[in-house]
């Protein structure tokens, strides 16, 4: 695949800047609308300042097949609080009013996008200031659904690769990938097992033999130390369940966020960022 079909976005610019700085990036994941649309927007507006280099925003779905208990619960909390795809795009628009540099990636499952309408979704996502998409249940076998139209619309389509994605399959997966490649470091769902940094290093090296795209590693990274270990071998570390868990743990009996929830989430983001930034010193 030639590089013209890899749209240039805030993601590509960010990874170039990180490379120039000689460090890895921190990618944070939070579910849009968790625990409520307002509280979620408030947290996301502060997350880049707290240290996130790239932001993944989860689009809640009723049946998050690839997610563990923490993110499943966050998705259900958000849906219960009335979160929808249009409201997720609203949050991104607010964010863009104050920050036009930090890349935003929407992550989720295909059905809500399919029902919203692929063309309408791509137009609205682009207009809202989205840079990339991760759609868990669209492997390269179904690239015609969204990946190819997204590239056409100037968005990066980020593919997941897993330990089960062998050398024979990797070229197929990275063929239309752009922005970065997301390595799922465990065979499993989000927020359960943690990977061994040595094995991750080997896997990242293997992926790099197939693509010159940056490689971000996620699933199972929970602490600043783990993030630092990953930052030594990959271009970015992705943390989701651990952040989502802070939200889960700081709610009153009605499910509303307790005062100080935002600070606690951002504090963990800061600690993770310190871990990632100090990793290669």
């Amino acid at each position: 695949m030639t590089t013209e079909s890899r749209p240039e976005t805030r993601i590509t610019r960010k990874f170039a800047a990180l490379k120039a700085e000689g460090r890895a990036g921190l990618v944070t994941f939070l579910t849009a609308g968790d625990p409520t649309p307002e509280a979620s927007e408030d947290i996301l507006l502060g997350i880049a300042e707290a240290g996130a280099d790239l932001i993944e925003i989860g689009m809640p779905f009723s049946d998050p097949m690839a997610d563990g208990p923490a993110i499943q619960a966050s998705s259900l909390r958000a849906l219960k609080a009335g979160m929808t795809l249009p409201k997720t795009l609203e949050i991104v628009r607010s964010f863009r009013k104050k920050d036009d540099d930090t890349p935003i990636i929407l992550m989720g499952y295909f059905n809500p996008i399919y029902i919203y309408g692929v063309d309408r979704f791509l137009t609205d996502a682009r207009e809202a200031g989205i840079d990339g998409l991760i759609v868990v249940d669209l492997p390269p076998e179904e690239e015609g659904e969204l990946c190819l139209p997204a590239i056409e619309a100037g968005l990066n389509f980020i593919y997941l690769t897993a330990p089960t994605t062998d050398d024979k399959r990797l070229p197929k997966v990275v063929k239309h990938a752009s922005g970065f490649v997301y390595y799922v470091s465990i065979t499993g769902i989000t927020g359960t097992k943690s990977a061994d940094a040595g094995q991750v290093g080997e896997a990242v090296a293997r992926i790099r033999r197939h693509t010159d795209l940056p490689v971000a590693v996620g699933f199972g990274i929970k602490t600043p130390d783990q993030a630092a270990e990953i930052a030594k071998v990959a271009d970015a570390a992705v943390v989701g369940s651990a952040l989502v868990q802070v939200i889960a743990d700081n709610r009153d009996e009605n499910g509303a966020p307790l005062p100080g929830t935002k600070d606690k989430v951002l504090e963990l983001v800061g600690a993770l960022a310190d871990g990632v930034r100090g990793a290669r010193n």
Partner: peptide, 12 residues
């Protein structure tokens, strides 16, 4: 029909 599954499952 089709195969709308996560990459981890695809090889299986």
């Amino acid at each position: 029909g089709g195969r709308y599954v996560a990459e981890t499952l695809m090889p299986l």
